[in-house]
Design a protein around this nucleic acid. Structure first.
Lengths: 338, 338
DNA sequence: CTGAAAGCGCTAACAC
DNA sequence: GTGTTAGCGCTTTCAG
């Protein structure tokens, strides 16, 4: 029982064949090996508990079966759903996914991107960075460029400012459509619970909503910025109720914030939707059963993961491609007709 | 602009130093390199956009910075929370997490475990397999053994039948305590919505509940098995309402099933908790805001990820260790006093 | 302190 | 068909 894992050399020796033959029998492409030797090698491998060393293989072959995925926060259902979609698609291609979670910290994102580069994965998908910080974007690009330059493939999800293939979510449009819908339902005094100003998604959804609102009703939506989380939504709603009790509907720029907002209403004894209507964005599946049913903009998160992998696997010859994804307004009980 | 990534040799040449010096300057442990050469090397590396090849490094060094994590389904908040906890802990140690999602398919689990072995990660954490299938368990052990034998470390979460360090969730105890609590609250006719029989978690929670119930009240809980998902909970509740309208409380063996169960009640016009009380298990954070608040058994999911990493990183000399995790009953509005 | 050279485990020409 | 051998990119003795 060696403290060291069995190598192909061990197997070859054990089977009484050459290194090359063992390689061909175990990991080689075509079965150019005589049945008998083949069998002998397999047996030896089994006896020794041999597993190929992927590192050595990819060094020798010059390519990996790894694809890296960088997300903001894997415990956030938005990202874990995307990750599941990507993992699923990766399986179809016999690829392994290295998942990294940045926790929303830009420096960490850079570190992890570097780590992913080091792994020499076949491709990297970025689903984390959605900030507006120019300096950070530049550093990101500085990491991405040499990687793509040397044959690595990179795609982004929802980060349209990077010069790589991107799955672009039409956040403005989705929020716009939602605003139009809310106006049509009879609401007149809207508020938008947004995330931090530096986040593009947040701004796009807010601006899209505003645009849609202006088009279909009078008055301006009122804005309130907090963290991009359940707790942020909770606080934002508390402030809203304190400062602007006249509002009749609140659009939280994602479902998690909407969830927090509804919780705040409950705590204050504000009835949703009786006293105040609430809507979200994303259509997180776990949240489809909350009561009242949350009106939201559905994003095909699982598919987005697959699309990103698809982009990254199918070489483009030219400039960065964009695959647009549209959100679909789903009206539920949280925003009844007024 | 070479189609190939810059190598250390390229850097050494560019800097006019030897390979060894370049290695020491860039990735070496101690700074035994003269300041001038050091600087020259760094500059050359920057100029060339050099990134070390982790594969080559770990081959040469004989060790990786990777730890593998195998989960049932990354889009399930139970697992994504554990994953987040593990990733976080891994970051502290400068380790990268390779995340694999099996989708609950045993064959796939075996494949992925093999893939993880091939990557020669420093350690592997298994959070997927919780089945009772002897054959599968044996195959799993067959993969695990040669890995540990050759210095690899393996830990499991909630799979107490594998001969490795394990974070054991006391499912029986948690469910037991919940049953006692429900009985104390005045419920008299309980049902348990379970998952498939082959899943250990499901059986343990069911049996624990039964034990707790017998201890504190008369009569036997009624069982109903469906899938271990939101939809499974939905169907189970439909059947329950059809077949056993006399039941006054339903324990779904996880929060997701409970969520589905509550949705089914809503659809049928059954008031929760007025007509029927519902409880779950896990205390998924995203679900803490559902209405009525779901009574459940809280599990420290994030910490569990950290504990697993801890086990796997801190060598044990002896036999498999167990770290017990207890669930804590959290009573909310879905099970008021009767 | 620096350089030359021997591997790490495997694949892929290239011979036989 | 099968074996020999030269690398893949890097770290690490071992000499200078």
């Amino acid at each position: 029982m060696p403290a060291r894992a069995a190598t192909l050399t061990d197997v070859a020796k054990e089977a009484g064949v050459s290194l090359a033959t063992a390689s061909r029998a175990l990991n080689g492409s075509e079965r150019v090996v005589r049945a008998e030797l083949h069998a002998r090698t397999l047996e030896a491998a089994a006896r020794l508990g041999y597993t190929p060393n992927a590192q050595a293989q990819s060094m020798a072959r010059g390519s990996t079966d790894l694809v890296g995925l960088l997300v903001n926060d894997i415990s956030d259902p938005y990202f874990s759903t995307i990750a599941a979609g990507l993992a699923n698609a990766a399986e179809q291609h016999g690829l392994l996914v290295m998942l990294c979670s940045t926790g929303g910290r830009p420096e960490r994102e850079l570190e992890l991107l570097a780590a992913l580069r080091r792994q020499r994965g076949r491709a990297i998908v970025l689903a984390g960075s959605r900030t507006n910080d120019r300096a950070h974007l530049r550093e990101l690009a500085a990491q991405v460029e040499p990687f793509t330059e040397s044959g690595g493939r990179v795609a982004a999800i929802s980060e349209p400012r990077l010069p790589v293939d991107t799955v672009v979510v039409d956040n403005r449009r989705g929020a716009h459509d939602l605003a139009v819908e809310l106006a049509a339902l009879g609401y007149r005094r809207p508020a938008v619970l947004t995330g931090p100003e530096r986040l593009l998604v947040s701004r796009d959804r807010r601006d899209g909503f505003t645009a849609g609102w202006r088009k279909s009703a009078d008055g301006e939506p009122f804005f309130l910025a907090e963290e991009f989380t359940r707790d942020g939504g909770f606080r934002a709603m508390q402030r809203l109720l304190d400062e602007h009790p006249e509002v009749d509907c609140a659009f939280a720029i994602n479902d998690l914030m909407a969830l927090g907002a509804m919780a705040a209403c409950r705590e204050r004894g504000v009835d949703v939707p009786g006293d105040l209507a609430v809507a979200g964005f994303d259509d997180i599946s776990t949240l489809r059963d909350v009561t009242p049913g949350l009106t939201t903009v559905r994003l095909p998160l699982t598919e987005m993961g697959g699309m990103a992998l698809d982009l990254v696997l199918n070489e483009a010859d030219g400039k960065p491609r964009r695959r647009k994804v549209r959100g679909e307004v789903v009206v539920r009980e949280s925003t009844p007709r007024r």
